[in-house]
């Protein structure tokens, strides 16, 4: 759950991103001061085929791999489509634009300002996660996920 006072931006590229590109853009964002939280949005790539005739078999996928952001290793479990950021204020936006211009050279992108993360827990959140769910994670990822969020140590 997020505080309504913090501005948010969404980076929406024209194409779904390869892990290499995600790594490059995230490392650029990582070096920009004033980013509070980051959410990678995309389509899930399960490690094991979840249903159908091949259920239970391994599902090797080029887009599902570990990338390195700063000093942290991040396991990508999705084919990244959008990157949503929560900022401390609007100051880093020009730097974000510059970073995107540098990375997205083969295709276009949109950098949108708006409200992209939940501001309060919905009824479904309450029903799924109960009253004791971590409010910092609601709307970002599954609070019951075993892996949890990746915490990047800031550069400041």
């Amino acid at each position: 759950m997020t505080d309504t006072t913090f501005p948010q931006v969404r980076i929406a590229p024209e194409r779904l991103l390869n892990p290499d590109t995600v790594e490059r853009i995230l490392n650029k964002i990582f070096c920009i001061n004033g980013v509070r939280r980051m959410l990678l949005n995309g389509h899930r790539l399960p490690a094991i085929v979840p249903y159908g005739p091949a259920k239970g078999q391994l599902n090797p996928h080029e887009m599902r791999r570990v990338i390195k952001v700063g000093d942290q290793e991040v396991q990508l479990e999705i084919h990244v489509g959008n990157i949503i950021l929560e900022l401390e204020n609007r100051d880093p936006i020009p730097e974000l634009k510059a970073a995107c211009d540098e990375v997205f050279t083969q295709f276009s992108y949109r950098l949108q300002e708006g409200r992209f993360m939940k501001t309060e827990a919905s009824l479904v959140d309450y029903a799924k996660y109960g009253p004791d769910a971590d409010k910092n994670l609601l709307g970002l990822s599954d609070p019951k996920s075993r892996s949890g969020p990746v915490i990047l140590q800031g550069t400041r």
């Binding site: 779904l16 390869n18 389509h43 599902n59």
Partner: peptide
């Protein structure tokens, strides 16, 4: 079959969860 309405990948391939 999911993928027909999604953006293409960087290499121009249609998304396929099963690749």
């Amino acid at each position: 079959v999911h993928g027909h309405s999604l953006r293409l990948g960087e290499d121009g391939m249609m998304f396929d969860m099963m690749q």
